[in-house]
Amino acid sequence: MAFFGLRKWPTPVFRPLWPFFAASGITYFLVSKAQDMGVRSEGFRHDARNPYAAQIAKEEHH
C-alpha cells in the first residue's frame, strides 16, 4: 500500500535525468564562451554601452 504516494523503494532521480544535467552544463559553458567572444569582438570592444569596456581596455595595455 502506498502511503501518500510514496513507495517502499526509492524512485530514481539522477539516473534518468543525467543527459539533461550534462546538456545544461555544456549549454551554459558554450553560451558563456559565446558571450565573452561577443563582448570582446572588435565591433563592441570600444562601445560605451559595453559593461566590460574598461576591463578590456585595461587588459589591452598589458
Rank of each mutant, 00 (worst) to 15 (best):
L30I: 14
W18P: 03
A23V: 14
W9D: 08
F29W: 08
P10R: 05
N50E: 04
A2P: 01
Q55P: 02
R15L: 10
R49C: 10
E42W: 11
F4A: 11
F4Y: 04
F21I: 11
L17A: 07
G43A: 08
G5T: 04
S32L: 15
R7C: 06
P51W: 08
Y52L: 11
P51A: 15
V39I: 10
F21Y: 13
R40T: 06
S24Y: 13
F29N: 03
A53P: 02
V39G: 01
T11M: 11
K58H: 06
Y28P: 00
L6G: 00
N50H: 03
R40I: 03
F44W: 14
R49M: 12
V31A: 15
V13K: 03
A2M: 04
A34R: 09
G43V: 06
E42C: 08
T11Q: 06
F20I: 11
W18E: 14
V39R: 01
F3A: 05
F29P: 01
A22L: 13
P19R: 07
F20M: 06
T11D: 01
R7F: 09
Y28Q: 11
P51M: 10
N50Q: 06
R49K: 13
K58Q: 12
F4L: 08
Y52H: 12
A53Y: 00
A57I: 04
F21T: 09
A53K: 02
R15I: 08
A53R: 04
A57R: 14
I26S: 05
E60H: 05
F20A: 07
K33Y: 12
I26A: 12
P19N: 06
F14S: 03
G43R: 07
T11H: 05
G5I: 06
V13D: 02
A48Y: 03
F20W: 14
P51Y: 09
R49Y: 02
G25C: 08
E59N: 14
H61D: 14
S41H: 12
G38H: 05
V13H: 07
D36E: 15
D47R: 05
M37N: 13
R15C: 07
H46T: 07
E60F: 08
A22T: 12
P51D: 05
R40K: 14
A34T: 11
Y52A: 09
I56F: 06
W18I: 14
F44G: 00
Q35C: 11
F29S: 07
A53L: 06
E59A: 15
F3I: 08
D47G: 10
